[in-house]
């Protein structure tokens, strides 16, 4: 297979396969969790689990009173790399082009310089998070291989994308193949690693809010 053929494969069937694995895997993961079920609560409720569940889903997205430096760092660096990643993914003109060629849908792109900034910020926040994972004894103790693996999987598409745009390192076609594959690996990994938190976070928050809300407490 030549470089160009490989490129055609990874941006065509390769991407479709990884998307399918992502969607099916994530659906399985969510259904598997849901069907574990939970016991019916026989105590008289004092509040609405649904309403409190929805509120917790929303309110946990922000700072909370009494937060420490660790908390501020987590939330700020977390938002920075998640947003950096998402904006770069969704608003880079070539990504939009690819999406358009598939679905016919498109939207305005952000200028390349802005995209460079979002990608660099995303990478910087990820580096800060990694350094902190080693430096903070609490985080270091909690971390396992998946924390590091997921870090690598997340940073790779950003780094290879930047190299590609600024034509550094490998020949363009090879680098493009590497870039797309790095994204495909990330997609496939989401349902099978702790990266699935990007979806299950809403389930976890809802349960937390619902459990406390049943007793009339907004958690």
């Amino acid at each position: 297979m030549t470089g160009v053929e490989l490129l055609i494969w990874v941006r065509g069937p390769g991407l479709q396969l990884s998307l399918a694995a992502f969607i099916l895997g994530m659906t399985y993961r969510i259904l598997q969790t849901y069907f574990l079920g939970r016991a019916k609560n026989l105590a008289e409720p004092r509040g609405s689990p649904w309403i409190h569940g929805m509120k917790t889903m929303w309110w946990r997205s922000f700072f909370h009173p009494g937060m420490t430096i660790r908390g501020y760092f987590t939330i700020i660096s977390g938002y920075t790399f998640h947003l950096g990643f998402i904006i770069t993914l969704l608003f880079f003109d070539q990504h939009i082009e690819l999406f358009k060629s598939w679905t016919g849908l498109s939207w305005p792109a952000l200028p390349p310089l802005v995209i460079t900034v979002t990608a660099v910020l995303g990478i910087a926040a990820l580096v800060a998070v990694l350094v902190d994972r080693f430096a903070d004894p609490v985080r270091y103790l909690l971390s396992d291989y998946q924390d590091y693996l997921c870090w690598v999987l997340t940073v790779l598409p950003l780094v290879t994308g930047l190299l590609l745009v600024y034509k550094i390192w490998l020949p363009y076609t090879s680098l493009l193949v590497v870039h797309i594959i790095s994204f495909e690996i990330l997609l496939v990994a989401i349902p099978f690693t702790k990266l699935s938190h990007v979806f299950t976070i809403f389930i976890a928050r809802w349960y937390n809010g619902a459990i406390a809300g049943y007793k009339g407490v907004q958690s």
Binding site: T33, R139, L142, D144
Partner: peptide, 15 residues
């Protein structure tokens, strides 16, 4: 149960 599974799945080890 479902809440436990969702909590462990979602923990990002932030501390």
């Amino acid at each position: 149960d479902a809440p436990v599974a969702s909590f462990f799945t979602t923990c990002v080890h932030c501390g």
